[in-house]
Structures are given as structure tokens and as C-alpha cells.
Design a protein around this nucleic acid. Structure first.
Lengths: 306, 306
DNA sequence: ATGGGGGCAGAACATGATGTTATGAGGAAC
DNA sequence: GTTCCTCATAACATCATGTTCTGCCCCCAT
């Protein structure tokens, strides 16, 4: 098969009309090209040029070959551009899934930073209920998924990003507002917003209360932490949620206090074990760690980076 | 720029799914390919494969690149076929011009032989009056031109192919039919068919007669030797034409005798000095010489190969 | 005609790409 | 655990491609 170099040199000779001209075009010395053309003629099996009057004259066969070669040459020339575009992630779509709490706080921050460093890349963020996380990942619908609960699957590779405490959120006029260091016992008398059994929040809350040996008073029941905060905002009771849900100024009308205890919400980044990571994916993971670290610096009482 | 080898190997790794598989496909050893892929990753600037569980997994970037590369690879693969077609002269049109006499005898034979060795090539034969020969060649309308008269032009390269004697053609019942070795003196008493002044035939006939010191009796006048023979065939007189016009069984009703004298019709093959020859053209030239030699063997009294 | 200049080709050599074999690490399957 | 498969590295061989020097040939201008 012809080498790309042969195609390149042949093209240059045809365009420039002489070996010397081609050598100048390609910034190499002339004798090498003379030899390469000779080899190329041996390979194709017919003369490409006649030596007439001390110069090269392309044969009709060379002209026919040139038409074919020119197409390839153009394409290969365009390849470098394609490579550059791919390297810049242009047009690449990074699909990320996240559970609701981090999906509204940490992950958007990481994606925003990513979008700064890779402007061509399109970020696609899907908020996933707990039971869809695995399917999303295994079906390849998302390259990575971020959750605030760990899980095990033989085809899923997970890494620990950071953790958030269980926090208490209530209206500033709530009786708890006066207490400095909240404990579970302090909360027990007041109505809380509970979660559907089986959800990560429900499990954490249950373990916290059972560790303290007290029973919670349940004033409401929701599926998502956002909803719990909404209820607390309207004065229904105390919301016990992960720190990510109330990160930043998400609920400015709520007072938030960490509940110091053993249980933490673990932020985990999950990837398909058998699928490779895109560059954008790698940067996203880094950005996520960065966002976690930044958040932990801003609020060390509630957040903890890996 | 990526080398064709890199494209080839990358392609093989992508379709086979592993470096080892690619090595088997390409019939080379595996370590070389590992290294080549490594270099290629350095060149493109992003990871093409992740090493997961001891195997290679293509990154999303690699998949994008593959789509581009596959197109090139297909084209380059098709190039070999194109080269073969070009080498076989398939679809190539060889344009040849010829003056009338050889254009009806020698040149068709040579083209017929050429068509045998290069079946894909299309022969285009144009019979040219003398005054168009140069223009045809210089305009590039024909790659080669065959004439029975020499001419000089700085842009035209000519080579001698062979020669034919001036021959006498007359009906078998003509008085000359009884004479064994015809001379100009023998013809002088009889009416001949003359040519337009300036034509090669007119020049040769004139020189032959003036060398012999006799004047011809002119019974008719024509432009082409074919016409002269036609007149002779109808009994108008004696046709004095080049041997090529009566080669083979062109005029079965005419008796033909060579006229021994100094003047010969020189068959010359002309090419543009600054244009290269096609393979078909080169073979045609050889076939023409072969046809000339063959004809000379068949009729040594009238024809002479170079 | 004659010398200068340009273009091509050959020789001799340097270097980098690409091939080889031997070997070891790591994971998967039995 | 053992075996097999896959990949990576090292050390080396070979070939393509680059270099410089040189000579030949043709054209052109003096």
C-alpha cells in the first residue's frame, strides 16, 4: 500500500511541477524526494513522470492518480482539524446523572467550572431518583452518576468524593433557634419532616434517632429533601436533610444547624467499570472534587471533602 | 500529521477490540502496536484507550476519531484498486492521428495489437490531412501522430519507423502488366494519376521523374492516394502511390509493382516534446514498429522497417 | 560557443519509525 | 491456586526517510 508520505510527496510534486519545488514546499532536501518518487513508481507499477529536458513531466497515468490522491490528501488534511476539535471536546455531550440533593448544588457547580475549561462541550444533567441510578449507568445513558449514598455493583466503579452532615432546618422563629449546639434529644419534642422508608435520608435519620435512643415525632412525610425544606419553610416542622440540599443560599428563609452524629451522607461518583471515560468526564470528576473541597472550606461544620 | 500506519493500526485496534487482535489482523507482533498507539496518543493529545482490567477500552474520543479515520481508510484501501485500474490502462483513451495511407493500414494493425495487450484502453484514431498534423499534436488532441512524410518542429519529437517504396498500381489488363522490372521510363508513355502540388506524393513522384529525366503524362489528379487507386481501378491510368496504401488486400483488382528509385516514403512517429507518453502510447509505438517489421517481412520489395 | 544556473539523480551516511524477541505484571476463568 | 490472556517495557534489528556532496544535463544569456 502507498504510504501517506508517498501520497503527500506525490501531491506536492504534481502541484509544484518539480521535485525541487516540492522539496521547497515540504521543507526537505530534494534528493530524498527523487528517491521516494522512484520507489513509488516501482510500487504502482507504472511511470509517474518522464524526465524530459532535465525536468519532470507527469504522465497521463500520474494525472489520473492525482485525481484519486487529491481526495485522500484533502481528507487527511482535514483530519488534523478533526483531531483538534475532538481534543477540545467540541460538540461532545457529557451526560451526568445525580441524585436530587447534589444534583441541585454540587454537580451544577462542577459542570459550570467544566464548561469554563471546555467551552465546546455540552453538559447534560439528569436528576435521578435513587432507584434509577444503576439503570442509567448500566444502560450507558450517563457516563457518570453522583449520589449521596454508596452502593455496590460488580459493573460499577465508585469513588468517594466527600461527605455532608445531617442538618436541621427550621424557621428562624422556631423554638430550636435559640439552642446553640443541637442534639437529637433537643429535636425529639418537635415535629419533624420524615422520609419515605428505604430512602437514604430515612435510613440516616432512623439511625441517628435510634443511636440516641429517642423516637422522632413525625409531622410530615416527603420523598425529596427539597420538599422537606419547603415544608419546614412554611412552618410545618423541622426538616432533617443532608447538608447539600441547603448548600449556599438554597433556602434563605431557613435556619440551618449541623447535627453532630456518626451518620454522614457520603457523596460518591460512579462510573461503568467497562466503559472508558471521556476527557470531559475526567475533568468533571476533578471539578467535582474541587467543588466539594471549596464547599467544605466554606462550611467546614457541615461538609467534608475526601 | 498522523501517519497512514497509525491510522491503519488504530483502525485495526478499534475493529478487533484489542491490541493483540490487531496484531493478528496485521500479521505483526503485539509490542510494536502497543508502542505505536502510545505515540499516537501523544500526537493527538488525548487518550484513545483506557487500560481497564488488563484490556483496552476505547474512549469516546477514540470513537469519534474512528468515524473520521474510517472514511480515509476506506479510500486508501480503494486506492490500490484505482492504481491497478490505471496500470491496466482501464478507461484510458489513447488518441492517435495518422495521415491517410498509414491510417488505413499500418496504424490500425498496431492499434489492434495494442487493444489485445491492453483490453481496457480505448483507441481513438483520427485520419488527418497533412496540414492538420502539427496542430493536432501541438493542441494535445492526439498523443502521437503517424505520417509518411517527415517534418521538423521545435516542439515535436519525431522518430523513424520504416519506409515504403513508391509503387505502381494498374489494372491487370494494362500494358505495363507484361513488364517484369518497372522503371520510370516504362511508365512515361502511359497516363498517370497525379497529386495536388505540395503533397508528399506529388513531391516524391516529381523527384522520381525528374531524376529519370522524363516527364509524366498526367491523366488525372487527386488529393489522396486512396482516390488515385480508385481511379486506376476504373482504368483511368496508372496510380503512383506509397506502398502503404496498397498494403495487404486493400485493392485486390489492381496489380502492384515497386518502382525502384531513391525516393522513399518515410513513416515517422511524432510526439509533443513537452508532454509525457502514456503507457498505451509507449505500447502503441512498439506495436507500430512491430507492425512495420511484420509488413516488411511480408513484402520486402516494397517495405522497409527501421 | 561558452559559461552560469537550475533541476535531477546517485552515493554515503544519520536518524527515526517500525519490526522483532524476551520478559514481566495484572486480571479473568477454571 | 493455576493457567491463560492481554498489555507494557526493554533491547535490539531493519528499513524508510532525512541529510550533504557531487556530477550530469539542459536551457539561457553573455
Amino acid at each position: 500500500m502507498l504510504s501517506l508520505r508517498q501520497i503527500e510527496v506525490f501531491h506536492a510534486v504534481m502541484v509544484s511541477g518539480s521535485v525541487s519545488g516540492a522539496a521547497r514546499m515540504l521543507n526537505v532536501s530534494q534528493p530524498g524526494l527523487s528517491r521516494l518518487i522512484k520507489y513509488m513508481e516501482q510500487r504502482v507499477g507504472f511511470r509517474l513522470f518522464e524526465r524530459r529536458a532535465g525536468r519532470l513531466v507527469a504522465t497521463p497515468e500520474a494525472h489520473r492518480l492525482f485525481m484519486e490522491v487529491d481526495l485522500i490528501y484533502q481528507r487527511v488534511g482535514g483530519l488534523d482539524q478533526s483531531i483538534r476539535r475532538i481534543a477540545e471536546g467540541e460538540g461532545h455531550e457529557l451526560a451526568v446523572g445525580a441524585s436530587p440533593s447534589v444534583g441541585r448544588s454540587l454537580v451544577p457547580r462542577a459542570l459550570a467550572e467544566l464548561s469554563g475549561t471546555m467551552p465546546g462541550t455540552i453538559a447534560r444533567l439528569e436528576i435521578l431518583p435513587m432507584n434509577q441510578v444503576q439503570d442509567y449507568l448500566l444502560a450507558g445513558a450517563a457516563e457518570q452518576v453522583v449520589t449521596i449514598f454508596p452502593f455496590e455493583h460488580p459493573l460499577v466503579e465508585s469513588q468517594f468524593i466527600g461527605a455532608g452532615r445531617l442538618v436541621c432546618a427550621f424557621r428562624p422563629d422556631h423554638p430550636l433557634a435559640g439552642i446553640a449546639d443541637l442534639t437529637v434529644a433537643d429535636i425529639a419534642p418537635h415535629g419533624i419532616v420524615a422520609f419515605e422508608p428505604g430512602s437514604p435520608h430515612a435510613q440516616v435519620i432512623e439511625s441517628v434517632f435510634s443511636d440516641a435512643g429517642v423516637k422522632p415525632r413525625i409531622a410530615g412525610k416527603v420523598r425529596f429533601a427539597q420538599t422537606a425544606c419547603a415544608l419546614a419553610e412554611s412552618g410545618l416542622g423541622v426538616a432533617l436533610v443532608d447538608a447539600f440540599t441547603v448548600m449556599g443560599k438554597a433556602f434563605p428563609d431557613l435556619a440551618v444547624r449541623p447535627l453532630h452524629g456518626t451518620s454522614l451522607f457520603r457523596v460518591e461518583l460512579h462510573r461503568h467499570r467497562h466503559l472508558a471515560q471521556s476527557m470531559a468526564g475526567a475533568r468533571f470528576a476533578a471539578a467535582l472534587r474541587g467543588a466539594m473541597a471549596q464547599a467544605a472550606r466554606e462550611d467546614p461544620a457541615m461538609l467534608l471533602a475526601a
